[in-house]
Simulated scan of single mutants.
Amino acid sequence: MDPLLVCLVLCGTITAATWLLSVITREYSWVDRIWSIAPIAYVWIFAAAAAFAPRLVLMAVLVTLWGIRLTYNFWRKGGYRPGGEDYRWKILQGRMPGWAYQTFNLLFISIYQNALILAFCLPAATAAVSDTPIGGWDVLLAAVFLAFLVGETIADQQQWNFHRWKAAERAAGRTPEPGFLQTGLFRYSRHPNFFFEQAQWWVFYGFAVAATGVWLHWTIAGALLLTLLFIGSTVFTESISRSRHPGYDDYRRRTSMLVPWFPARERAAAESAV
């Protein structure tokens, strides 16, 4: 069968299942729970259709490593436990009428996000029909993908350590200060894990470019739409942080939102010293 058709059928099945489970359980993180798993299946389907051509195997292995790491991080935060719903869904649900949120759940959470997951995997479809042999660009792309994977791992570990410290402070009857992470990689970006996550999928699109020699084609849509999703998610997340932490606005003023960069105060000091 056409691998794209197989992936579309699988995507449709997952979409129906995640929506149905959300209706039954009244938890809306079912797409979050398959976010790191479905791409592994999609990319390996394209690899199998290409008779496990070296480029496709490399792409599938990279996505598998990405998926294992992200699944582990989601698991240790309790995402797969009953009640392990992303806290932002409850907040959003409280801001919308019931019928509007259920429409949002069907159209955006279930249908759009599942379609997006398949979309950012589709550079594998382009690579699968290419007869260009694997080469130096593929090796470079793999190295950059792994570097971004390491960056995201470090950022998630720093966040994990911080939240465990906060929990320990509260358990001891103390109020944790500061209330949000602003050291390590978070000193240079307010959301370094978001940045590295998006960057990996832009690199993944690069494999389609290496396979075809064409810089711009339709499979760029997945990476582009993922970036737009993260921007919207970041704005919403920060609106919550600003309401909870009085010092967050100062952190926003001095720290890059996504792309890691030197804090504003350090830039100003360096410029004045020149």
Score class of each variant (00 low, 15 high):
1 M>S: 11
1 M>H: 07
2 D>T: 07
10 L>C: 08
11 C>P: 01
15 T>L: 15
16 A>K: 12
17 A>Y: 08
18 T>E: 08
19 W>Q: 14
19 W>R: 13
21 L>M: 09
23 V>I: 10
25 T>V: 05
27 E>D: 04
27 E>V: 03
27 E>R: 00
28 Y>I: 11
29 S>A: 08
30 W>Y: 01
32 D>H: 03
32 D>G: 05
35 W>E: 03
38 A>C: 13
39 P>V: 10
41 A>K: 07
42 Y>R: 03
46 F>E: 05
46 F>W: 00
47 A>L: 01
47 A>K: 09
51 A>V: 12
52 F>C: 14
53 A>P: 05
54 P>L: 08
55 R>S: 06
55 R>E: 08
60 A>Q: 02
61 V>M: 13
66 W>G: 13
66 W>F: 08
69 R>Y: 04
71 T>E: 14
72 Y>D: 11
75 W>G: 13
80 Y>S: 14
81 R>F: 09
81 R>V: 10
84 G>N: 09
84 G>M: 01
85 E>H: 00
89 W>A: 08
89 W>N: 02
89 W>S: 08
90 K>H: 07
91 I>L: 15
92 L>M: 13
93 Q>F: 12
94 G>N: 04
103 T>L: 15
104 F>V: 04
104 F>N: 07
108 F>D: 03
109 I>L: 15
111 I>D: 07
114 N>W: 01
121 C>Y: 03
123 P>N: 04
123 P>G: 04
124 A>V: 03
139 V>H: 13
140 L>Q: 00
141 L>V: 10
146 L>C: 09
147 A>F: 08
150 V>D: 09
152 E>A: 15
152 E>C: 14
152 E>Q: 11
152 E>G: 13
153 T>Q: 14
155 A>F: 13
162 F>K: 12
163 H>W: 14
163 H>Y: 05
165 W>F: 10
165 W>E: 02
168 A>N: 05
171 A>Y: 05
175 T>F: 09
178 P>W: 12
183 T>L: 15
188 Y>T: 08
189 S>M: 05
191 H>A: 15
191 H>Q: 06
198 Q>H: 12
199 A>L: 10
200 Q>W: 02
203 V>Q: 07
211 A>T: 06
212 T>Y: 06
217 H>P: 07
217 H>T: 01
218 W>T: 05
219 T>V: 00
221 A>G: 05
223 A>W: 01
228 L>E: 08
230 F>N: 07
236 F>T: 10
238 E>M: 11
238 E>V: 06
240 I>C: 01
247 G>W: 02
248 Y>Q: 09
248 Y>T: 09
252 R>I: 09
253 R>V: 05
255 T>V: 14
256 S>V: 10
257 M>R: 02
259 V>Y: 06
259 V>K: 03
262 F>R: 12
266 E>L: 15
268 A>Y: 01
268 A>I: 08
270 A>N: 10
271 E>M: 14
272 S>A: 15
273 A>T: 08
273 A>F: 12
